[in-house]
Design a binder for these strands. Sequence first.
DNA 1: CGCCGGATTGAAGGTACTCAATCCGTGTGG
DNA 2: CCACACGGATTGAGTACCTTCAATCCGGCG
Lengths: 218, 218
Amino acid sequence: MPVDLSGDDMQRINDLVQKKQRVARGDYLYRSNDPFHSLYAIRTGSFKTQVLHADGREQVTGFQMTGEIIGLDAISTDLHSCDAVAMEDSEVCALPFNQLETMSRELPSLQRHLYKIMSREIVRDQGIMLLLGSMRAEERLAAFLLNLSQRLARRGFSATQFQLRMSRQEIGSYLGLKLETVSRAFSHFQELGLINVKVRAIEIIDVQKLQAAVNCSS
Amino acid sequence: MPVDLSGDDMQRINDLVQKKQRVARGDYLYRSNDPFHSLYAIRTGSFKTQVLHADGREQVTGFQMTGEIIGLDAISTDLHSCDAVAMEDSEVCALPFNQLETMSRELPSLQRHLYKIMSREIVRDQGIMLLLGSMRAEERLAAFLLNLSQRLARRGFSATQFQLRMSRQEIGSYLGLKLETVSRAFSHFQELGLINVKVRAIEIIDVQKLQAAVNCSS
DNA sequence: CGCCGGATTGAAGGTACTCAATCCGTGTGG
DNA sequence: CCACACGGATTGAGTACCTTCAATCCGGCG
């Protein structure tokens, strides 16, 4: 997952920040092939990133929330390789990358932080590959819900009650499933008493069993 | 894909290299949870990287060949997050990461190179997510073969004739398919006259149609 | 109130999986 | 040198899971 900033580094990055930037729900922060200038720290709100295939198919590659950094994919070619779309009205800080590069030579902790953030993104992606490559539908959804829960908890929100910012369609795209399959999996988990679902309002009732469902969706 | 080294940076990294290290076919270069010291540049041979799930399922996350760098995932936690296994007798150079970090403060080009390598790995992973999340079996295999072909060509090998280093099982794991499905897809491509397959010896006959198969496996 | 988009639910169909038999190439032992 | 055993690959038949197509529901908004 694009990674939380904290402590000293965050302070220093704050100094670097030029302007806070608003992005309305549905707007693109950047698009695939846009020229690369900055990474973005999400201050409030949330985004999805997606890649588009030649024939129009799209794949959501991640959901990002407050405190996470997006845009790392663009460093390699100086072009963004995916779209970033705000899932709600959001605020970001642009972090001009060439300034980050310069600063990171003088601030070893910043340099290390950047390496770690990028590495964590790689590890996150490995996890998604595992999910997409070897889990069944309900296992994927369970893993998704638990991941969301953990990230919200780390931010001080409830780990058991939250509002989904994304549609069934978007969840499906992220999990490699069709929206109907996602919907059915939600309904099934509710039948089993693992969660309460009221459209986008989720309550996790039995974390244990949900974790068990990741390993073997029975 | 872990990215090719070239030019100046490779020179400088060469100076840093302590020792060439041999890894026999089937041996682990590192395992998940091993402590992290070094990145590895593959000098000869090829590797697969895989993550293991609690319940024993495994997912191949990549096939790496000469000139590519592996181990980037370990930076985030100082523990390797996957296994790296030699697919043939291979040689690697260990690149102690703390030395890389230090050097990269003095050599902006090295620093930039490291950022780019990591970013390219992130982009590569996005591509695999797209593949796993939204392609059918034969589309995945076609994409796999074309990717392999390109990478071999860039290294000066034939783009149309090559030996697979990995089993059907491993290809299947990488592509999120069962080995039988991989085998059937190979056979079907041969029937269609797109490729010649003799077990692990591959000849690509019609690149165009193979590319078309990525978009719409007919 | 009635429309609209997103979500749910049902039924039918298809793709990939599972299980199983066979093939084939390589390496080993008689 | 040939026979056989072994592992990986191929092929077939039946099945399961997810998708597709379609109808319905539900909440928000004009």
